[in-house]
Design a binder for these strands. Structure first.
Length: 425
DNA sequence: TAGCCTTTGAAGGAG
DNA sequence: CTCCTTCAAAGGCTA
């Protein structure tokens, strides 16, 4: 198992983790991949749990199960090269995320964006895609290469299944986007946006980055009906509030964003006046809702009752009540979880499997079949996730969420689990 | 309707 | 330091 060098030093630790991961057995898997993959496939077909899938998915899945031979790999490499070039240029200007236009939140990870995993020191395309999706404010250069600035329409963002995509716009890791399309669902592409943006620092007009013209943050009042769209990604992940706003806004211990000057400026200048509407449920105006905050109460009682007193006044609140009002801050996703989110839809489409348990088995295998570099992308993303999370919620501990779920009764796995039962696709 | 299943990884506590 | 436990996502299934 890959072990990170402790959560604290989240810099280059993942490198070791990858190495150790591969050194501890995956190497073999890599070497004999072709052989094992095919053997695997045979197993797969013979032991499919859901028989209804057999007819529909075998050929597709075969191609899918060979990451390095899949058809998209070519375009992937091309895209990468293209990105690399764009990235090199931008790096010379001071790094990807040094964009002065979006100070704050997304750039908490700036210093680490020289990805130790990637040979060219740049964020991988998928990473950029992810960041673009997750942090639309990011000036992610990758999207410059990826997106056609002439047609900013995120057509590929508007469908769960990547069917309606412009072929030449298809990112190799499009599923990441399409899978999380709901963030941007209400979006109308801001094709009418001003083609020129003034650099707030230099005042020099410059060509807007496609990501800045992104549909996620239309600056024109006519382009968006409500705040839901521009902040949609904050609020939703995969059509559900992966990172939703707590009923009373941010709770006390995690005002990091609001306290962050750059963040405030981001909100006030970048989003106002159209973008920042009065908080519907007492959300602090300066509070950037991070997706990790989840409150079940928001659905139940969306009125003022849920407004945490701690959000408005510094008046002491009974510990119990404070506890109740505490929004649930989720753990940051690890590399595999990120991979799952991206690939699940694809696997589901290929296998027509529905059960997540089965899907996850497949995903687990595919995860192991990924190349080191491919995994590195996700480790890097996860690392940034954690970094961002820790910045957003400095006092948060994974322990905080302990006990939120009910007991997990399963103590020991039934060791007699036969291989044949493994779900395959 | 709450919890299980299933995967990997991160984190924290215990020894 | 190692081991163990819990949780993160997801959605069908089950009691």
């Amino acid at each position: 198992m890959p072990q990170l060098n402790g959560g604290g030093g989240d810099d280059l630790g993942a490198n070791d983790e990858l190495i150790s991961f591969k050194d501890e057995g995956e190497q073999e898997e890599k070497i004999s991949e072709n052989v094992s993959a095919e053997r695997d496939l045979d197993d797969v077909k013979s032991s499919l749990v859901n028989e209804s899938e057999n007819n529909s998915s075998s050929s597709d899945s075969e191609a899918e199960r060979r990451p390095r031979t899949r058809p998209e790999s070519e375009s992937y490499e091309k895209t990468r090269e293209y990105f690399s070039e764009a990235l090199r240029r931008q790096q010379q200007d001071g790094g990807f995320f040094k964009s002065p236009h979006y100070p704050g939140y997304p750039f908490l990870m700036i210093p680490d964006l020289t990805n130790p995993y990637l040979s060219n020191g740049s964020l991988s395309p998928s990473a950029r895609t992810y960041l673009q999706m997750k942090w639309p404010l990011l000036d992610v250069p990758g999207s410059a290469g990826l997106k056609d600035s002439r047609s900013p329409t995120p057509g590929h963002l508007s469908n769960k299944v990547p069917v309606v995509q412009h072929a030449h716009h298809v990112h190799p890791l499009t599923p990441l986007i399409t899978y999380s399309n709901e963030h941007f669902s209400p979006g109308t592409p801001p094709a009418h946006l001003s083609p020129e943006i003034l650099d707030p620092k230099t005042g020099i007009p410059r060509t807007p980055h496609p990501s800045e013209l992104s549909p996620y943050y239309p600056l024109s009042p006519g382009a968006v009906g409500s705040i839901a769209h521009p902040l949609g990604w904050f609020m939703q992940q995969q059509g559900q509030p992966m990172y939703s706003i707590p009923p009373g806004g941010f709770r006390h211990p995690y005002p990091a964003l609001a306290m962050n000057a750059s963040m405030s400026s981001l909100v006030s200048s970048r989003f106002s006046p159209h973008m920042v509407t009065p908080p519907p449920h007492g959300l602090h105006q300066t509070g950037i809702p991070h997706p990790a905050i989840v409150s079940p109460a928001i659905k139940q009682e969306p009125n003022s009752d849920n407004i945490s007193p701690s959000m408005h006044a510094k008046s002491p609140v009974p510990a119990k009540k404070e506890e109740e009002k505490k929004p649930h801050i989720k753990k940051p996703l690890n590399a595999f979880m990120l991979y799952m989110k991206e690939m699940r839809a694809k696997v589901v489409a290929e296998c027509t499997l529905k059960e997540s348990a089965a899907i996850n088995q497949i995903l687990g295998r595919r995860w192991h079949s990924l190349s080191r570099e491919e995994q590195a992308k996700y480790y890097e993303l996860a690392r940034k996730e954690r970094q961002l999370h820790s910045q957003l919620y400095p006092g948060w501990s994974a322990r905080d969420n302990y006990g939120k779920r009910k007991k997990r009764k399963r103590e020991n796995k039934p060791d007699s689990k036969p291989e044949a039962f493994e779900v395959q696709c």
